[in-house]
Design a binder for these strands. Sequence first.
DNA 1: TTATATTTGCAACTCAGTTGCATTAACATC
DNA 2: GATGTTAATGCAACTGAGTTGCAAATATAA
Lengths: 126, 126
Amino acid sequence: MGIIRKTQSVALLLNEFHDQTTAVSVIELVKRFRAKINKTTIYRVLDKLEDDGVLHSFLGKDGNKWYAKCAGCSKSKHTDLHPHFECVVCGKIDCISVDIQLPEIPNREITSSQLLIQGKCETCHR
Amino acid sequence: MGIIRKTQSVALLLNEFHDQTTAVSVIELVKRFRAKINKTTIYRVLDKLEDDGVLHSFLGKDGNKWYAKCAGCSKSKHTDLHPHFECVVCGKIDCISVDIQLPEIPNREITSSQLLIQGKCETCHR
DNA sequence: TTATATTTGCAACTCAGTTGCATTAACATC
DNA sequence: GATGTTAATGCAACTGAGTTGCAAATATAA
């Protein structure tokens, strides 16, 4: 079940996803909106936005949840299979818009995958 | 700091990693050894075995920790960069021994990566 | 066998994420 | 604009994986 009503929480949260490539962690969002939105609501709104194909989620290296804007996803199908790049210095995570070549695995049926890459981002690189 | 003493816990836990390809979740190990080893000890032993290059760890889709035997890793360097395949039916996770081709990302320095693939395994496939 | 340093168990804790339920607010209808 | 319905929210309490500090146990060297 996705978003049905345009509430204040939905507007505030959506506003945090400025561009198509920068991801935001739920922990960060909870911190950012501590005074305005209850953390339960944050989890629920993000979940619904993912259902609607507006955002996609994935786990960072530490296993915490991150969200980023979807590009070309719909309610029925998430097409976001791009890798994510996590900077080991500043902690930022970006969506990398490249197609990844999954290996051939005999006798197995692949339904989804996620690739998380660690390293130093453009800013922290030098 | 790795393993220094050959204790009973180390022997018991190592024994659970029969083959090179099947991973075991920490949750499962804690459950399996509930009566014999304290869960704190399990976490600590696995951590040390990873330090020593005997096991490698990664996170499953739900963010829980899994361990598997290393092939060709040493105390100083973990060379295990293979993908892991998680069966959505039976929950089993296997190491897939193929080299993955990481995408070129301009201006970023890649230090590590992990690829988790979901689907149906050989057994659950048909 | 003894000394010593590592390992273990235990209990209590941390913290991301979830649940149930009463209250609030969005929105359609009048 | 007022009203009724139902989704959305806040709150408090919970869950469960993983961690920490410390005292007791045990592996190993001497």
